[in-house]
């Protein structure tokens, strides 16, 4: 009797999971595994009759292109500067919003809505703001006397990377602010009271109570965010499409470029594998470093 019931439960579990498993493995893992194979083939949309194996040629072509150094540098800048600024501003905003005030709900709606926009549309919005001739950013900077002539934010390779990062910071602050605000509100108020009795000022409280308490959230959100920003070509695609002259390509926009404009899936997959390798290295290193840090604390 008992065995029968167990079986029924097992059947229930199996049937409930079946659609999910079929979808995820059939349409995510299967294409990815096939895609890894494609990286070692001559696989171009324009000549699908000749998809022979060509060893590491796709990797060689991709990494030896003149742009590749810039792309790696851009990817590093894109991830690190965006992350640091999003985190610092987001944390600051969350700290200021920790105590409830009148209208906080409405305020949240006005400052966190960027979360609901697509990266592509944000790219378009900022493309308009940063317009070199009639862009409002130029107009404001001129009015404030900070510049004397208009800057070609998106047409000058010196400024283009800076501009896409500004847009990305604008987008991502909300993520950190939301996550950290939730974490801050979970800190028990007794801890602050105790720290106050011990004579800790607001900075001391921040350092000795708040930050240690929400450390797990900080670690998980920053790790997730690094991976997410790394895999986020949408904004750059909408804003500059990697231009001018390839100066704002990161690895994932470069990959997209290979797919959409060159139709070279072999090279695109090779870039994808490089991306996965970098992310695996990062995740391993990050988990190791944060664990080591924790071990030192306690």
């Amino acid at each position: 009797m008992k065995l029968f019931r167990l079986n029924r439960t097992q059947t229930f579990i199996f049937l409930c999971l079946l659609p999910t498993i079929l979808l995820v493995f059939g349409f995510t893992y299967y294409p990815i595994v096939k895609g890894i194979d494609v990286a070692f083939r001559n696989y171009s949309l324009f000549n699908l009759s000749d998809v022979r194996y060509i060893g590491m040629d796709n990797f060689k072509t991709v990494t030896s292109s003149a742009q590749f150094g810039t792309i790696l540098k851009n990817t590093a800048l894109w991830v690190s500067i965006s992350l640091v600024l999003q985190f610092v501003i987001g944390f600051g905003v969350a700290l200021l919003m920790r105590r409830s005030f009148r209208g906080r709900g409405v305020y949240q709606g006005f400052v966190f809505y960027s979360w609901a926009l697509s990266g592509f549309l944000i790219g378009i919005i900022w493309r308009w703001l940063f317009n070199g001739q009639i862009g409002v950013v130029n107009d404001l900077l001129l009015k404030m006397g900070l510049i004397s002539e208009r800057i070609g934010f998106l047409s000058d390779p010196k400024w283009a990377m800076f501009s896409v990062i500004v847009a990305n910071v604008w987008y991502g602050v909300a993520f950190f602010a939301i996550m950290l605000l939730a974490a801050l509100q979970s800190v028990p108020s007794e801890l602050y009271e105790a720290a106050e009795i011990d004579g800790a000022g607001s900075f001391g409280q921040l350092r000795h109570v708040t930050i240690p308490y929400i450390m797990p959230t900080i670690i998980s959100t920053t790790a997730l965010r690094v991976i997410w920003i790394f895999n986020f070509p949408d904004l750059i695609y909408g804003m500059t499409n990697g231009g001018p002259a390839g100066s704002t390509h990161i690895l994932t926009t470069y990959m997209l470029d290979k797919i959409v404009f060159s139709g070279d899936y072999g090279q695109a997959s090779a870039i994808g594998i490089i991306c996965i390798a970098i992310l695996v290295l990062f995740t391993t290193f990050y988990l190791f470093a944060t664990r080591a840090g924790k071990a030192g604390d306690f």
Partner: peptide
């Protein structure tokens, strides 16, 4: 299985586009 779900969030999905 949970891990497999998490991992899908980290892979650049364009890799699978040719097959898809």
């Amino acid at each position: 299985l949970m891990m497999a779900f998490f991992v899908t969030q980290m892979i650049p999905l364009f890799i699978g586009f040719s097959t898809l």
